[in-house]
Design a binder for these strands. Structure first.
Lengths: 203, 203
DNA sequence: AATATTTACTGAACAGTGTTCATTTTTTTT
DNA sequence: AAAAAAAATGAACACTGTTCAGTAAATATT
């Protein structure tokens, strides 16, 4: 049955073509401003065809969401080998912000944007956010073992740290840094993060 | 010329009617999901009428933006009289988060959402964000005078603090706290903020 | 009081959106 | 070569923000 296999392959290729094109447009123009017809035009198929491969626009969005997290983890993985937990925490933050600066559209999509259209994806199954949370909590736990964060609830500390970095990231991305000169913003981002780490260290 | 005055009054009333209705719908259903026709239906006028009082949807959005900041400042004002700068900083944070919890839709609109439609409002004129920034920076300056934040750039410290609180707020609002039980989230918000203040104090 | 002018409002029309589905085209099986 | 199955189409539906010629109401002038 070579035909069935070829069909399977063709279906996957088509899916990839659609997803790649959608991703490209989403990142270029933003999710809201990319229409299904735009995607259809780009792949030179009719709009209806997309719906044979993806249930709706939000499924396309979800698929790209997953891809974003894969890229995100490549950044985090680079420093996950560091022995000293506090140094690891510092470098994780730097990787986080580097991802934000190099992939702002992805970050926006992954951590800020709500699902477009309806919020249908309530699937408790595999929330990609869980995994990044895991990386953080285990590092914080290691820090605690190394003598930091005495008398502190590690869950609260983890949440605080994530909120700090996410706060920096989302103010940068959603343009709430207008009171600082444009060419100093990235610098300020890392400076603030560094100051935060400094006060964490002597805790 | 009593007529001109009455007309002026009527015009303002109409503007208020439109804005109040739009605000109500924006907060209830979200900006994107509220259409100009929805607003027109609610006030029992035709869609075209709205455009005689507001240039476009984003002007309605802007008007409500301003109103949001007025409410926001009522929260901050409550504690701006506190003498001790560090205590003021602590209470400002609590007020900030209280506003977020009591007016999540407003907060989303003011600090997270991008202008709907195009990002036309580049008006450098009076950015409402500036004022809240002012409150923070002056309090941080007072803290520095009181001996805190030694050898630290107050601009960096201010930005860090704001990012921390904003990070907590936006993770709460944009539902990135799914790994915590729903009834514990508000509590965690304040706990994280409190821990942050604790580590700030011994700095 | 009747007419002219200004102001206010309407709602159809335009170009766009996500999505569906009967119809047509292409491919595979008989 | 004919029948069945699969894939792709594109018109249609109900919606969106916005515009603008036309109508209706209120005011000013004669």
């Amino acid at each position: 049955m070579g035909i069935a296999e070829r069909k399977e392959r063709e279906k996957e290729e088509m899916q990839k073509l659609i997803l790649d094109t959608a991703t490209k447009l989403f990142l270029e123009k933003g999710v809201e401003k990319t229409s299904m017809r735009n995607i259809a035009d780009a792949i030179e198929y009719s709009p209806g065809t997309i719906y044979l491969y993806f249930k709706d626009k939000s499924e396309l969005f979800d698929a790209m969401h997953v891809k974003g997290f894969e890229i995100f983890f490549q950044y985090l993985s680079k420093v996950m080998v560091i022995e000293d937990p506090m140094e690891r925490l510092e470098q994780l933050g730097i990787q986080y912000l580097t991802f934000v600066i190099e992939n702002p559209a992805y970050y926006d999509m992954m951590f800020i944007l709500r699902t477009p259209m309806q919020a249908k994806h309530n699937k408790e199954e595999w929330n990609p956010g869980d995994r990044s949370h895991q990386v953080l909590t285990s590092t914080v736990a290691d820090c605690k073992r190394a003598g930091y964060f005495k008398d502190q609830n590690p869950e609260v500390v983890s949440f605080m740290i994530w909120a700090q970095v996410h706060g920096l990231a989302s103010m940068f991305i959603r343009e709430r840094m207008k009171f600082y000169p444009e060419d100093k913003r990235e610098e300020l981002l890392f400076e603030a993060k560094h100051t935060f780490m400094e006060i964490l260290r002597r805790f």
